[in-house]
């Protein structure tokens, strides 16, 4: 096995690790948008997932409980959003911004109170040893060349996410349920005529999206890093939003976008260190480039990719149109 081969394996593994939370949140957001509701506030929901997972894991000593708490927190956020947008006819863009504010505010508030509380009790705010998740190599399979380290040496939630992707893809593509979800966003009148409760359907789709975003938040705080910091999602929620458009509301496209983004991200991180250690003169010359330009790469690459593809997709027709429509 050559060195470059190792490098490619490592990069691909890191790419999938970094892309997992975005894929997870993206699947949820896709289902929500297909049903006709765009949620700009996934960033806030992910943050709530982060803080819920971290604090509950810290208190209960069990990562699984934390993960469930994050999913629950995401669903609560989704319920608030659904109450405002689906049942309360609020504008989705505006309400989404408010949900983002709510998530930032509430997670920051809970974090500060949690720190005070733990310190008053004389406990550390760090996660108890062994309560966070680590990578779970799948026996035997992880020894396969290339595929093993990339696909079978990931965090547990990554496997679940990949399975979920297949299930959601199959449901959207081949089942009556998928047809209904698509119709909720494209032809709510037809759904109504067929006896489907439009608002209930949209709310359920949003609940699913909230659960996904919450779990994505948990992935960031108790799997990938074992730490919480205010605004730790760092704009990933917005990137997911962009990637759903990028993937033209098609699941494979979105996953591809997330992986592409994750790959460029892990590539730039590796380049940042490799330029100092490598003997290669071309790589070594990069030492004069400020590291921020490397950090910028994924975003620039996304813009360039979009500019090259240069084709707009319309998206679900009834996004941000409350049901039932008011005729004026």
């Amino acid at each position: 096995m050559t060195a470059s081969h190792n490098m490619i394996t490592f990069l691909s593994r890191q790419a999938l690790t970094a892309a997992t939370p975005m894929i997870l949140a993206g699947v949820g957001e896709l289902v929500g948008e297909l049903s006709g509701v765009i949620n700009i506030g996934i960033e806030g929901t992910m943050l709530m997932g982060c803080i819920a997972a971290y604090t509950v894991t810290g208190v209960s000593n069990h990562g699984t409980v934390g993960l469930l708490a994050a999913i629950a927190a995401g669903m609560v956020m989704a319920m608030i959003f659904a109450a405002a947008c689906v049942w309360g006819r609020a504008d989705q863009i505006v309400a989404g911004t408010a949900m983002d504010l709510l998530g930032v505010g509430l997670s920051g508030m809970v974090w500060m109170m949690y720190q005070n509380w733990r310190e008053n009790l004389g406990f550390s705010t760090a996660l108890p040893h062994g309560s966070g998740f680590s990578r779970v190599p799948i026996p035997l399979l992880h020894q396969i060349a290339f595929l093993g380290p990339v696909f079978f040496d990931q965090y547990a939630l990554c496997y679940i996410t990949l399975c979920l992707c297949v299930v959601v893809w199959w449901v959207l593509r081949h089942t009556r349920l998928g047809l209904i979800i698509g119709a909720l966003g494209d032809a709510p009148e037809a759904c109504h005529a067929a006896g489907v409760r439009v608002r209930m359907g949209r709310s359920l789709c949003l609940l699913f999206a909230g659960a996904c975003s919450g779990a994505a938040g948990a992935y960031l705080s108790i799997m990938q890093t074992h730490a919480f910091a205010t605004n730790m999602t760092g704009g990933q929620g917005f990137v997911v939003l962009a990637l759903v458009i990028f993937g033209r509301w098609k699941l494979p496209g979105i996953i591809g976008g997330c992986l592409f983004f994750g790959l460029i991200n892990s590539l730039q991180q590796t380049l940042q260190t490799a330029r100092y250690t490598s003997q290669n003169t071309a790589l070594h010359a990069l030492t004069h480039v400020p590291f921020q330009f490397f950090q910028m790469l994924p975003y620039l690459a996304a813009i360039v990719a979009l500019a090259i593809m240069s084709r707009k997709a319309p998206g679900p027709r009834y996004i941000n149109v409350p049901w039932p429509e008011v005729k004026t």
Partner: peptide, 10 residues
């Protein structure tokens, strides 16, 4: 925590 203000705004 000052983030209370953000919650209120939202």
């Amino acid at each position: 925590p000052h983030n209370m203000a953000n919650v209120i705004k939202a």
